[in-house]
Amino acid sequence: MKRRRLVGIIMIVLIALLSLLLASAGTAAGSERLLSPSLEHPAGTDTMGRDLAGRIAYGVLVSFSIALPVSVISILLGITLSFAFSVSGFPTIPFLMLSDTMKSLPPVLLALFLNALSGPGMLKLIVALTVGNVPNIARLCHSRMMVLRSDGPSLAALSMGVGRIKVFMTHMLPFLLPYLGTEAVSIFSASILTEASLSYLGCGVPPMIPSLGSILAEARPVMLSAPWMIAFPAVILALIGIALEMIISGSSETDTASH
């Protein structure tokens, strides 16, 4: 199944590279409105005459540049939490109860609320998406650390006076990383979709920055007369989603196999 994961990774890298090459916000040009795909405009033009291929590429980069920090911060958070759980004095139960309350604030709701306070913004988006993942990360780390509680080598090392942090890094972290890694990819995938939905509503990325969601929002009125405006972003989103799914499903088989 490792092959599946590899294919997924390759797809994502290819999409990212292609987007880096083609990304361009485009200039509004009234005379070029809604042109169907051609050699000059491989994905056609949008309702304001801007080249769609360039905007889609830009949108992909924007999505990735939101999803990546969210995933990375989530992993870091996971590592920190796992370490905290390994410390015996840590108030685990109250902490878990607190983090569970955050389950009632899904990222979309939190993002909409933050928008109501002060409008759209990239930072706000990242915060809202990260906070939404905290309960899941916490639970995941907690359940994994429960397994590790009775891990022989770790207990032995501790009793021999090896530092807590060192024990964590050498014995526990390697066990945790695959789980955190897979979770991070899930978070990445979910963030892409959530950002697209929020931008579609006008509450994600600021209006001047192209985003797959806002392109689709502009496409809605001309859904039937200019189908390319929906088709291309949709295909790209689907490819990204499928690639990420392949990475996840390709990983979990190996995980369960090794345990």
Partner: peptide, 12 residues
């Protein structure tokens, strides 16, 4: 496929 695209696209 359905989970790979945002729900509003499914709606479209």
């Amino acid at each position: 496929l359905i989970m790979a695209i945002p729900s509003f696209l499914t709606g479209f």
